[in-house]
Design a protein around this nucleic acid. Sequence first.
DNA 1: ATGAAAGCGCTAACAA
DNA 2: TTGTTAGCGCTTTCAT
Lengths: 306, 306
Amino acid sequence: MRGRVNKAIEDLDYHPNVMAGSLRSRKTKTIGLIVPDNSNPLFAAISRSIEQVSSDLNYTVMLCNSSYSLENELRYINVLRSKSVDGIIILPTTTIPDHLNQLVENMLPVIVLHHIIPKFKTGFVLVDNFKGAYDAAVHLIDLGHKNIGYIDRPIVLPHSLERLNGFKQALKDHNMEVDDDIIIQSNGFGYKDGYETMEKLLRRNHPLTALMAFNDITAIGAMETITDHGLKVPDDISVVGFDDIEICSFIRPRLTTIHFPKYKIAEYAVKMLLKKINNPEKIKDFEKKVLPLRLVVRDSTAKVKE
Amino acid sequence: MRGRVNKAIEDLDYHPNVMAGSLRSRKTKTIGLIVPDNSNPLFAAISRSIEQVSSDLNYTVMLCNSSYSLENELRYINVLRSKSVDGIIILPTTTIPDHLNQLVENMLPVIVLHHIIPKFKTGFVLVDNFKGAYDAAVHLIDLGHKNIGYIDRPIVLPHSLERLNGFKQALKDHNMEVDDDIIIQSNGFGYKDGYETMEKLLRRNHPLTALMAFNDITAIGAMETITDHGLKVPDDISVVGFDDIEICSFIRPRLTTIHFPKYKIAEYAVKMLLKKINNPEKIKDFEKKVLPLRLVVRDSTAKVKE
DNA sequence: ATGAAAGCGCTAACAA
DNA sequence: TTGTTAGCGCTTTCAT
């Protein structure tokens, strides 16, 4: 019998209409992914991994770029909901939890990736930003640096604040003063913004011997500024980035940075989401996975000049 | 009346189930996008643009990474078809046209992006690879280079062959000999592969003064090899890439390359696809758009040393 | 213009 | 195990 049906399927080149089934079963085997900007190398790597893991588990991914705008984020959430995705993984642009909590209330599983949203109630997968930045700062301190600049995220959010706090705590733990005047916010998220922000920082004329940035893109931009000012990395100024995007090992000097586990975070996020999708009673359960980070020392950091 | 309905929509927080509508109307307002690897900066930028343009026109994008495998490509095509996407945009991994033509025969619109598939019958959007490479080579020739190496794509496909041919033609047009021994294929698609391939090329001991690569990633990898061999770019060896990925302006020396119009190609692709979606009688029409490329001279190329 | 009815192609629930 | 039936929530079509 089974055999005869299979034969008929073959003969008629029958392809089931998944949508019709989904309408009935209320499962689409599709998840929504909202990132700020897929052309950012970190997010590109994360998107790729999420798609990979999802596909291995028989899910398809709808990709959305919020362009760092809450308005777009809300629009996309509505689109994804109306297209009946089984769940959403989001790297949000604000700390506003309401619309996300509302989705969860409506029994649509949501996992927040990478970001920290204080009042969001269910699934988080993120990295230990504090510890990562702490380790990076200690690395610089161990190299003898006493004047370490810091370029922060344009719009401060908890995850970048954690990084900044890790940096500050490392200084404090080593009896160093935190000089707020060599902490500066970037103008934006591109390489160019890192470049321009570093110019601004250099104009403040601090005796900087090292720099940390909230991500690699900014650090790389800043490194070019340093070079353009006739200074050398790491001889005059050491630089540490954050995230370990692929290019870090292929620029010179190779960038010392904090390795961010892109595939692993994707894996945890998708699996946490699927757990909620497959166990609706767990949709509202609080769950939080924090992945460790690891300092990767390359060539952009060196002992401070005497 | 209209007003009363709208009020009820508000009051009941009514959200239409798009899927149910799609089942009936046979339109999902969703398109499939298949790229080899979304973490490649060129593809990441293209994906981002395609999503942007699609979203502006009220379409959602399902993202798939074929990982340069035909098998995956076929699997994804089936998934997309079973999920009833309205059309597919694909950067294929082979020149096999059959499965794509079959989709078109089954009235599913397909646009082939960036690649050239000789026997594919309907929509193409690509760039003028021949002219781009030709211009790049002429730039080097004008700078006095007579020994120009070339790193080709790992698996040669028509679009990379066009680039190679443009390079060769430029040499011929300037009465220079094409030495096949300084043309080499990369081992893979990453920075690292460019690095390793350049090492292999240098070991051949040609008096290279310039290098072209089939893309920026490879060129950047090769540039690091040159540096690691104690040589300088562009003083000892000039380097030209292809695609103008964002990082090109933020490495030192800034990479001279051929600018690839990522947003524009996405725009043409999505609009060509939508034209077919909205005019089913045009699904099988042949259409081909070739976008011009433009040389961007930066700091990785200089006059040959005397 | 408005209303009624059919049906898209499945899955789930129930019956035999 | 196998067969039957209802209905998911819309759009389309046809009647009013």
